[in-house]
Amino acid sequence: MKVLDLQCPGGHRFEGWFASADDFESQLSRKLVECPICGATEVSRLPSAPRLNLSGAAQPPAQQGAPDMNELQARVMRALREVLDKTENVGDRFAEEARRIHYNEAPARNIRGVTTAEDARALVEEGIDVMPLPIPAALKEPLQ
């Protein structure tokens, strides 16, 4: 099993596990490798050192108070998962359902969905709080 360090054009770094280097190249050419954060399929391989498990080896000190990019991405993904778990997906009926909730025509609850920029602006003008939240492709479907 080959564990490769990968990066998308958006700067998101992630690991990919492949049977071999040829398997990675094959999947990459068929656009099967995608960034778990933004879904980009233009992925490049980063230089990486072999991973060695050395018990008792000193770990390099982390920068004080600054989480590394992997930790930051992990935090964002955890927060997005929590939002998905605690909201109802109303799909393309978002604007309509947000209005129904606002005007007490539907039960109050946390919802998410899709709408146009124009409809989102109209909701804000009506005093309805909305927030755009792009959901990475990796969270839209269950892992296989």
Rank of each mutant, 00 (worst) to 15 (best):
L6I: 12
Q7M: 07
G10T: 06
G10Q: 12
G10L: 09
G11K: 06
G11V: 13
H12E: 11
R13A: 06
F14W: 05
G16D: 03
W17F: 06
W17M: 08
F18S: 00
A19I: 05
A21V: 01
A21E: 02
D22N: 03
D23Q: 01
F24N: 00
F24Q: 00
E25S: 02
E25I: 09
S26L: 05
L28A: 10
S29L: 15
R30E: 15
L32R: 14
E34R: 13
C35N: 03
P36L: 09
P36I: 12
P36H: 09
I37Y: 00
C38W: 01
C38G: 00
G39L: 03
T41W: 12
V43M: 01
S44I: 06
L46N: 05
P47E: 08
A49K: 10
A49F: 09
P50A: 10
P50R: 13
R51G: 15
R51N: 12
R51Q: 10
N53L: 10
N53I: 11
L54Y: 04
G56P: 05
A57P: 02
Q59S: 15
P60I: 14
P61T: 12
Q63N: 06
Q64D: 14
Q64R: 14
Q64L: 14
P67Q: 11
N70M: 13
N70E: 11
E71W: 08
Q73I: 07
Q73F: 12
A74M: 07
A74L: 07
A74Y: 04
R75E: 09
V76N: 04
A79G: 08
A79E: 04
L80Y: 04
L80I: 14
R81V: 05
E82G: 12
E82V: 03
E82S: 15
V83N: 01
D85Q: 15
K86R: 15
T87P: 09
T87D: 11
T87C: 14
F94W: 07
F94I: 06
A98I: 05
R99H: 13
R100H: 15
H102P: 10
Y103D: 12
